[in-house]
């Protein structure tokens, strides 16, 4: 959570609101579980969620597909987005490991690498993980070119974006949960 607060302070576009949200966030952390928010705080939390969410789009972590997921959310599956994202990170960890191992083999099995990354990319793109998807695409291009160094390099990028996104989304969903089920943050214009 600390990291989140810092990240928010650094990255939230509007400095004023970021100041405010940081304070709220910290207080929320301290009293998590027992603290009941006032309606004022709740609305501020929601605003915070909206801001954080927007920043994920603005910074290119997410794309329109994520909005699609959000739009699928309904009473039957109120936490659909989070469920899907969790599923993605759980399942894709396996692929990451696979690729990591495949990259240590020599000679490189580009076919295998490409297949794994293809699947990874498919999952990533379906949750709207824009940066991860882009990096995966890059990786696959290296694969096709049978450029081992390029693959390894690009894989680091993939992992980096993957980890970054996971952190951001963890934070985001935590905040969403804090803000409660009434979360009705206005959806920003689709990219």
């Amino acid at each position: 959570m600390q990291a989140i607060a810092i990240w928010m302070a650094n990255n939230t576009p509007r400095s004023k609101s970021s100041q405010f949200s940081c304070a709220t966030l910290v207080s929320g952390m301290v009293t998590w579980g027992s603290y009941t928010y006032s309606s004022m705080e709740m609305s501020q939390l929601r605003r915070q969620v909206a801001v954080l969410r927007q920043s994920l789009f603005d910074q290119g972590y997410l794309d329109e597909q994520f909005v699609q997921l959000e739009e699928l959310e309904d009473n039957d599956n109120p936490n659909f987005v989070e469920e899907v994202v969790t599923l993605f990170f759980r399942d894709s960890a396996r692929l990451i490991v696979n690729i990591e191992q495949a990259l240590e083999c020599s000679p490189l099995d580009f076919n295998k690498l490409d297949n794994n990354m293809h699947q990874f990319k498919g999952s990533a793109s379906s949750i709207g993980a824009k940066k991860v998807k882009n990096e995966s695409t890059q990786f696959r291009e290296y694969c096709r070119a049978e450029n081992g160094e390029g693959c390894k390099m690009s894989f680091q990028q993939v992992k980096k974006e993957y980890v970054a996104l996971r952190k951001k989304l963890e934070t985001y969903f935590q905040l969403v949960r804090q803000a409660g089920p009434e979360e009705t943050a206005s959806r920003p214009a689709r990219n």
Partner: peptide, 16 residues
């Protein structure tokens, strides 16, 4: 689809 993430999303979309 062997990808559980895609499968879940598709299922939801189709149901919707």
């Amino acid at each position: 689809d062997d990808d559980p993430t895609c499968l879940k999303i598709l299922e939801k979309m189709l149901r919707n």
